[in-house]
Design a protein around this nucleic acid. Structure first.
Lengths: 319, 319
DNA sequence: TTGAATAACGTTAGCGCTAACGTAAAATTC
DNA sequence: GAATTTTACGTTAGCGCTAACGTTATTCAA
């Protein structure tokens, strides 16, 4: 027991004994076993983090912000990506429960019924991020994607855009993207207008997807639309480059808008009109809340953060 | 023991008994404990992965590629970033050893002596990625950064560039970037030329760093250089945007070159001259090698992959 | 029918640790 | 100096699992 106390830095060992123990541990090449420790104490300092993908820098931004907080609290991060598949999320939850993790972080929104059931009755703190929800499993920090899309739609309606279109991933893939698109569309529908055209881009969201989606849309529907709303800034940038290649004047002939406020936008000589999402804030505050909950401190249940619309030079008033 | 066998899917239980056990487990809400399992068997199916940062998409690309292989082999990934600090890497190694991980992945290159010592005498498979090395701790898959920088330097020397400069992070921060810069410089020194100027950008590598670095360099040394070699494509793009803002003709007045072949380069109407690094390949092959080593299959010790130079439109022959 | 082989299932011990409690010595109090 | 408190350290049991081996039932060959 003195060894156990000394190694953990718990009081109840004299300085002399502690020194002898540490010295012996060193010469014997003793390595304490967190596995046995976790079994004995029935809690494990492992935190599971599951995000849809790391290819989208949204999640690496959030994850990066969380990690430092976990590290300060000596929590180990067990990581997984779902690739937008709820079954994989469920499997991850089971594995984390088997490891008796202290907490788990999931992308907010939709989960399998079994995932919710397992988490509710397990002794594990649950944080949902990115999507804000009124009915979180336990804790939630995120934004209201529908509202964010709507806010952007409103601004563009007011600027005089009348024939909006959308480029994003195929339906059923990224639910949050769909929420934004729905909100965006609603803003136009309130004015009796509707989406002129949607283009689905399969594969990873990215620069290339935006450029290809833009090309497809232009090929099929030349001048039918005056505005394109993209999944995110990188896609929009891809689209913008396609427009440049075709000598389409943005924002003269066509407006482009996006979502996220990614780093690239800080350096563009023609910045993209976008909503800046508080990714670092989500990560930091979420991690703090989760750690708090693990330590038994009462936490706010659901925190909604606000994206900020940043008017760039890919849109302009239409009158 | 029948329960143990049934839950693990090991043979030695009749189908009927197995079904009864699984049913009972479900109604009793039994959740097997990987912690106890790991203690009993003395191995844990946890793989530690440590990369310098997730802000640089190089590491998220490599990491993404590794993850799916780990998942297929039912290994859990424990993740950490070092923020380019070897002490943090050492601490991570200790934590993974305490968890009796089956394998560990580190960014290749420099480690603390204690890190090497701990890993050599521990029963854990070690893979170093990104930097190729002739003296790996155990396994290694990566590229020769010095050589890659040299190859790019040679090409640009041949194109007639004579006054090269470099923009990257401060010295002592990213050793691999320094290796590339050293190789790049060597190619010019062989011709009796040398780096006209270096600019250090603090903080995260990124678009903004490139733009700021470019601005600083232009402010201080107007027309003293004919070429800038950047840490990576994103920085180079930032620099390119700064040039555009200042109406500096690239590649007419100034050449820009970079490293990595990141996604953005696929959509640029003016692609950046760069070396494309085989990130997905490093991740996939590395993960396969590590899994193989864990399973006791003999593996090649050190695998060197080759970046491919992609001539873009930010450089052109100088004659 | 009998002995041997096989399949199905059970018992035991121990993985390395720590909570809880016990004991002895030193420090403090009155 | 005896009684009390404090500090330092030890003993015991048990966390939940599985390797190894033991037992019983079943199958099959001779």
């Amino acid at each position: 027991m003195s060894v156990s106390r000394a190694m953990r830095g718990v009081e109840g060992v004299s300085a002399a004994t502690r020194a002898r123990i540490l010295h012996a541990a060193d010469t014997l090449r003793y390595s304490p076993s967190s596995v046995a420790g976790a079994l004995a104490t029935a809690n494990s300092s492992l935190v599971g983090v599951s995000v849809p993908t790391l290819q989208d820098s949204v999640f690496s931004d959030i994850f990066s912000a969380m990690r430092s907080t976990f590290e300060r609290n000596k929590m180990q991060t067990v990581f997984d990506t779902t690739e937008y598949d709820n079954e994989r999320e469920e499997a991850f939850v089971e594995r984390m429960l088997a490891w008796r993790g202290a907490g788990i972080v999931l992308a907010g929104g939709h989960h399998t019924p079994r995932t919710r059931r397992l988490l509710r009755r397990a002794n594990i703190s649950v944080l949902e991020i990115w999507s804000w929800s009124t009915d979180p499993i336990e804790l939630c920090v995120g934004i209201d994607h529908e509202e964010s899309g709507y806010a952007m739609g409103r601004r563009l309606v007011e600027m005089g855009y009348r024939r909006p279109s959308y480029i994003g991933p195929q339906p059923g893939f990224d639910r949050r993207a769909e929420q934004r698109c729905r909100g965006f569309t609603r803003a136009f529908e309130e004015q009796g207008l509707s989406l002129v055209r949607q283009e689905w881009v399969t594969g990873k969201h990215s620069f290339a997807g935006g450029r290809i989606g833009m090309a497809n849309m232009l090929d099929k529907h030349g001048p039918a639309f005056d505005l394109v709303y993209f999944l995110n800034d990188h896609m929009a940038f891809g689209g913008l480059e396609e427009c440049r290649a075709r000598r389409i004047d943005v924002p003269g002939q066509l407006g482009l808008a996006a979502f996220n406020g990614l780093q690239i936008n800080d350096v563009l000589h023609q910045p993209i009109t976008t909503s800046s999402s508080p990714r670092a804030e989500i990560g930091e505050q979420g991690a703090r809340m989760l750690i708090g909950a693990i330590k038994g401190v009462a936490q706010p249940q659901s925190v909604k953060l606000e994206p900020v619309i940043m008017m760039g030079e890919t849109t302009k008033p239409q009158w």
